[in-house]
Amino acid sequence: MQQCLNTGALDQAEAKARAVLASGTGPLNIWHMLADAVRKQGRIEEAKVLQEMMLEHLPQNVALRFELAETLLLLGEFDRGWREYRFRYSLPHTTNLERKVQTPRWDGAPIAGKTLLIHDEQGFGDTLQFIRMVPWVKKRSQANIVLQISPELASFGRRIPGADKIIIRGELPGPFDLHCEMMSLPMAMKLQMSDLPGEIPYFRPDRARLEIWRKKLASIRGPKIALVWAGRPTHLNDANRSMDLAQLVPLAAENKDITFLSVQKGPKSDEANTPPENMKIVNLSDDIQDFEDTAAILSLADLLISVDSSPVHLAGALGRPVWTMLPFVPDWRWLMNRSDTPWYPDMRLFRQNQIGNWGDVVSEMAKAIPAFLKSRA
């Protein structure tokens, strides 16, 4: 049964689990595998029912609570979803990521005259997505806000309003009264869909860096589309969200006047050095030193086409057009069955219609590019 799940034989895994559970009772691990098989097939409401049933019997099982949180958020059930999401650091593979803080977590109440430490967490994309809430927290809390952020995104943190002090992750923050993880802010603020997206853009590119890249790209005539085709290899879901550059060839086949700009980082960036035939691509990867470079490039490109990775959040925060390619069952933040997102008004979502099928996604985008470029002209 587990092997069926691991190899993607989801219907077989489901059938085997249902056979064991035909009497209506059975071991927790079989119920768990059934819920997993159902969810991966896109039957999210059905998975939710199974997860809630298991939690009725095992309310202290934090792994189940976290899985339910992701299901609730995927369904857009924010109230309970944010509350359950606080269990994200109680799992075997995440306990080492939690930063132990001795002061209470902020609950959303006004705390004028006190100091609130907001610390970023998890991936760059998470920070880029949720840092928009810092000005909202400032307005609600009336606190002195210390924002602790990774060095890679510190320059953006310094340009967003709301933080009275910026410190780099690992530095001592000084005295503070309360704290809140950046992705616990939605729980504290009771974030609703109607609160989104807030002010867009909430980032702007660095002017000096923008001029540097304007000169570098000046010789490229015609439309420019930035590409990212793979996420961070160590990401737990990377196999489902990443692809090879060769799979994007249809974008060029139907749009021969476009120059593609590779802003891909990591091991997959080398694929742009030997691009597929008839794909006009400029590999910028080696010249991109940080997110400031990427922000400048995205501000000059007509469009970013990317898998679900941090550049899509950067483009969205900049208010730049971005098309995000999503697996059949996406990460919770993209919801289900919609081509737009409440998080970023200039983002369009292209979803797999079956597990692992990127071909139809790329074909749909290739056909949509001419109309998009015409609208921008």
Rank of each mutant, 00 (worst) to 15 (best):
L172K: 15
P342R: 08
L28I: 13
L91W: 04
F156W: 06
L55W: 02
P27Q: 07
P276D: 04
N6M: 05
Q352R: 11
R209L: 03
T103D: 00
K114V: 02
L314N: 08
E277C: 02
A208W: 05
G42Y: 01
L236A: 14
A230W: 04
R320E: 06
A17R: 09
E292M: 08
E45Y: 01
K48V: 02
Q2S: 05
E152A: 14
W136A: 13
M54P: 10
H57L: 09
V329M: 06
S285P: 11
P201M: 10
S306V: 07
N337L: 13
L314Q: 09
M325H: 03
N240D: 12
I297D: 06
D331V: 03
A246V: 11
Q129M: 14
L284M: 14
Q129E: 11
W82H: 08
E199F: 01
L178V: 10
R232K: 11
G42P: 03
H313V: 13
G108V: 10
L74R: 14
I220D: 02
A252Q: 07
M54C: 07
S299F: 01
G222F: 01
T25K: 13
S219F: 00
P135S: 13
N144E: 11
A226D: 06
A253Y: 05
N144R: 14
N61E: 15
V62S: 14
